[in-house]
Simulated assay, not measured.
Amino acid sequence: MAGVDGSPAALRAVRWAADTAAQHRVPLHLVHAAGYPDLYTGESVPPPARFTEDLRLQRWEFLHAAREVAAETSGVEIHTVFEPDPPIPSLIHTSRAARMIVLGSSGHSGLYGLLIGSTTLALVTHAHCPVVAVRGDATQVPERGDPRPVVVGIDGSPLSERAIGYAFDEACFRDVELVAVHTWSDADTAVFSEARRHFDWEPVRDTEERRLAERLAGWRERYPDVHVRRVLAKDRPRHELLDWSRRAQLVVVGSRGRGGFRGMLLGSTSQALVHNAECPVMIARPLPAQSA
Score class of each variant (00 low, 15 high):
residue 11 L to T: 01
residue 11 L to Y: 07
residue 11 L to G: 03
residue 11 L to A: 11
residue 12 R to C: 02
residue 13 A to Y: 03
residue 13 A to N: 05
residue 13 A to C: 04
residue 14 V to D: 05
residue 15 R to Q: 15
residue 15 R to L: 09
residue 16 W to I: 07
residue 16 W to S: 07
residue 18 A to W: 08
residue 19 D to F: 01
residue 19 D to C: 10
residue 21 A to V: 15
residue 21 A to F: 03
residue 21 A to N: 09
residue 22 A to C: 08
residue 23 Q to P: 02
residue 23 Q to T: 13
residue 24 H to Y: 10
residue 24 H to D: 13
residue 25 R to D: 13
residue 25 R to W: 03
residue 25 R to Y: 05
residue 25 R to H: 12
residue 25 R to P: 00
residue 25 R to T: 12
residue 27 P to E: 12
residue 29 H to W: 08
residue 29 H to A: 14
residue 29 H to S: 13
residue 30 L to A: 11
residue 30 L to D: 11
residue 31 V to H: 11
residue 31 V to G: 06
residue 32 H to V: 04
residue 33 A to N: 06
residue 33 A to P: 07
residue 34 A to G: 05
residue 34 A to Y: 03
residue 37 P to T: 00
residue 37 P to A: 01
residue 38 D to R: 09
residue 39 L to C: 00
residue 39 L to P: 00
residue 39 L to F: 15
residue 40 Y to D: 04
residue 40 Y to S: 02
residue 40 Y to L: 12
residue 41 T to F: 05
residue 41 T to K: 00
residue 42 G to C: 01
residue 43 E to M: 12
residue 44 S to A: 13
residue 44 S to D: 10
residue 44 S to P: 03
residue 45 V to W: 11
residue 45 V to F: 10
residue 46 P to W: 06
residue 47 P to K: 07
residue 47 P to N: 07
residue 48 P to T: 12
residue 48 P to W: 10
residue 49 A to D: 14
residue 49 A to K: 14
residue 50 R to A: 12
residue 51 F to E: 09
residue 52 T to Y: 01
